[in-house]
C-alpha cells in the first residue's frame, strides 16, 4: 500500500491513557485509543446500532458501547458481549514524531 493511506490523526498527547478520541476523515469516522501498550484504531460506529463509540468506556483492551453496553476487543475488533454480535473493523496505527497515523483502506 502506498504512503498516502496513512492519515494523521493528531499528536500522541491528544489522547489520555485508557481513553479514546473520535477522528473523522472524509465520510468515515473512527475511534483512536491509547492503551497501556500503545495506540489502536477501530471504526467509530457500533456494529449493533448506529451510535458512535466515542462516548463509550475503555477498560483494559475493551471498548464498551455507550448505548447498550455491547463490548468489543479494541485490538482485534471482536464482539465480546451482546447485543453487539458483529465484529468491529480495526485499522493499523503508527506513531511518528509524536504524531499518530492510521492506515485507512
Amino acid at each position: 500500500m502506498s504512503e498516502e493511506n496513512w492519515i494523521e490523526v493528531g499528536s500522541t498527547d491528544s489522547i489520555e491513557e485508557e481513553d479514546l478520541i473520535r477522528f473523522d476523515h472524509q465520510d468515515k469516522t473512527f475511534c483512536v485509543y491509547k492503551l497501556t501498550d500503545g495506540f489502536y484504531a477501530t471504526d467509530g460506529i457500533c456494529t449493533h446500532e448506529a451510535v458512535h463509540l466515542e462516548d463509550g468506556l475503555v477498560m483494559d483492551d475493551e471498548i464498551e458501547c455507550p448505548m447498550h453496553q455491547g463490548i468489543f476487543n479494541i485490538k482485534s475488533g471482536e464482539a465480546l458481549s451482546p447485543p453487539a454480535c458483529e465484529d468491529l473493523k480495526t485499522y493499523p496505527v503508527k506513531v511518528d514524531n509524536n504524531k499518530i497515523f492510521i492506515k485507512i483502506d
Binding site: 463509540l53 462516548d55 468506556l57 453496553q69
Partner: peptide, 11 residues
C-alpha cells in the same frame, strides 16, 4: 441523545 450518557452511567 444516542450514547451521550452511557459512559457516565457505566462508571
Amino acid at each position: 441523545i444516542a450514547g451521550k450518557i452511557g459512559r457516565d452511567i457505566r462508571i
